[in-house]
């Protein structure tokens, strides 16, 4: 743990970190109100208190957002994700009942093009949420994902799985990536 770095935080960076944490604080307050199921001054005030207390007590490094967000393409990403979720869920479900239930799988190394922790997390979540693929290991410094893919035997299927993860990354960058990274991937 980097204990020393805490001591040398300047006043400006502290203020910047408060601004960066604002979306998180708002999200926590909204979650608090959803949990109580009511929107009253009491829940707002207690929500703010709890949100600040939680972010102070369990401090995490701020997530660097890209500063660009396109709601339309994010909706497209969500729609595609939900569609894949439904299809893949039933595929795996049918496989469980299939006569030959021994699926040959593979662990693929996939080099992501993004360098952003945020996008990497998003891609990993999407990959893991869709049944049939699963992130086994993450290499943050090289932006690599090691994905366990169910039902991948032939080189064709392996390539398809690889391209699928990359296209998820493409779609997420289109919605939420920084301008530079989206330009680089666009082609």
């Amino acid at each position: 743990m980097t204990d020393n770095s805490v001591a040398v935080v300047s006043e400006t960076s502290r203020r910047a970190s408060l601004r960066e944490q604002l979306p998180l604080l708002v999200a926590l307050v909204v979650l608090w109100m959803l949990l109580w199921g009511s929107l009253t001054p009491l829940t707002i005030v207690t929500g703010i208190v709890v949100a600040i207390a939680v972010t102070r007590a369990f401090y995490l490094p701020p997530v660097e957002l890209s500063g660009r967000f396109n709601p339309f393409w994010f909706a497209v990403f969500l729609g595609r994700f939900l569609g894949e979720l439904v299809i893949a869920s039933f595929q795996v479900a049918l496989q469980a009942f299939a006569a030959t239930p021994v699926p040959r799988s593979a662990i693929l190394r996939i080099e992501l093009r993004t360098r952003s922790d945020f996008i990497m997390t998003g891609v990993s979540l999407a990959v893991s949420l869709v049944p049939g693929s699963l992130v086994v290991e993450v290499d943050r410094t090289n932006a690599r994902l090691y994905v366990h893919q169910l039902n991948a035997r032939t080189p064709d299927e392996l390539e398809k799985a690889r391209a699928h993860v990359l296209s998820l990354e493409h779609d997420l960058l289109r919605a939420w990536g920084s301008r530079d990274e989206w330009q680089a991937v666009r082609s």
């Binding site: 980097t2 770095s5 502290r14 910047a16 970190s17 701020p62 943050r140 410094t141």
Partner: peptide
């Protein structure tokens, strides 16, 4: 090992830590 995963932070690629 390749990668620190989601929980192990080597602290190199991360921005400086603020807060109290």
């Amino acid at each position: 090992l390749p990668g620190g995963g989601l929980d192990d932070e080597p602290g190199t690629a991360q921005g400086q830590r603020g807060g109290s």
